[in-house]
């Protein structure tokens, strides 16, 4: 790579607009869908406290933050479609339509919305740098997951287990602290990815 300062000639033309990048979109969507699957089936990362972190929601939010709301939601939808069709890629290596009947179905069905909302809210990241960008990403992730995944999860618990709102919230609230940590991690990873691949940030959609 040649530094611009070595060229005496002055301003360089901006890089050519990306070629019709449907192929790259398909590849990114499929790869992030696969990443969500891997995060769901790999054993969690051990932590000092002894409660392992499983990374499924981390991967869902990361898809939205990195790919943008449309491609992020498509990645999650692809993951759900393949999982519901019977490939065991949901948490604990389950799959198939059976998961829709389970109490946790609400969380799963809200994942695409979570990725989409996080992706939408993260749009200002392209115009910010440094800590401001990290803050945008983190905030987008937190609102994206709390307003969709947790709401969907609570509704699912109420419907499936015939619980009232208070009882469902009591079950859900256990996951909140872990989700803050996962959103912090997702924002940090998204931030690093935008540093490594600047055009990724320009082409979010």
């Amino acid at each position: 790579m040649t530094d611009i300062t070595k060229d005496a000639g002055g301003a360089l033309p901006a890089p050519a607009a990306a070629r019709a990048s449907v192929a790259t979109d398909v590849a990114l969507v499929a790869t992030f869908a696969a990443f969500i699957a891997v995060c769901a089936i790999l054993p969690g990362i051990p932590t000092g406290s002894g409660v392992p972190i499983t990374l499924q929601t981390f991967a869902v939010i990361l898809s939205g933050l990195v790919l943008g709301w449309r491609r992020g939601a498509l990645a999650v939808l692809l993951y759900l479609a393949i999982g519901l069709a019977g490939v065991p890629i949901f948490a604990e290596a389950t799959g198939g339509l059976g998961v829709l009947a389970k109490p946790s179905a609400g969380y799963l069905l809200a994942f695409p919305l979570g990725a989409a909302l996080a992706g939408l809210l993260a749009s200002p990241a392209v115009r910010s740098v440094g800590w401001a960008r990290y803050t945008v990403l983190f905030t987008a992730g937190v609102f994206g997951s709390f307003l969709t995944i947790h709401v969907g999860g609570i509704l699912g618990l109420m419907a499936r287990l015939d619980l009232d709102l208070g009882a469902a919230v009591a079950i859900d609230v256990v996951y909140l602290p872990g989700d803050i940590v996962k959103n912090a991690a997702a924002a940090a990873v998204a931030y690093t990815l935008f540093r490594a691949y600047p055009d990724l940030l320009r082409h979010r959609r």
């Binding site: 990114l28 990443f35 690093t192 990815l193 691949y197």
Partner: peptide, 16 residues
């Protein structure tokens, strides 16, 4: 994650 994005972009190039 960095390697994953590299892989996805290489795959996109290969598809194209």
């Amino acid at each position: 994650a960095v390697r994953m994005v590299a892989h996805a972009r290489a795959t996109g190039d290969a598809l194209a």
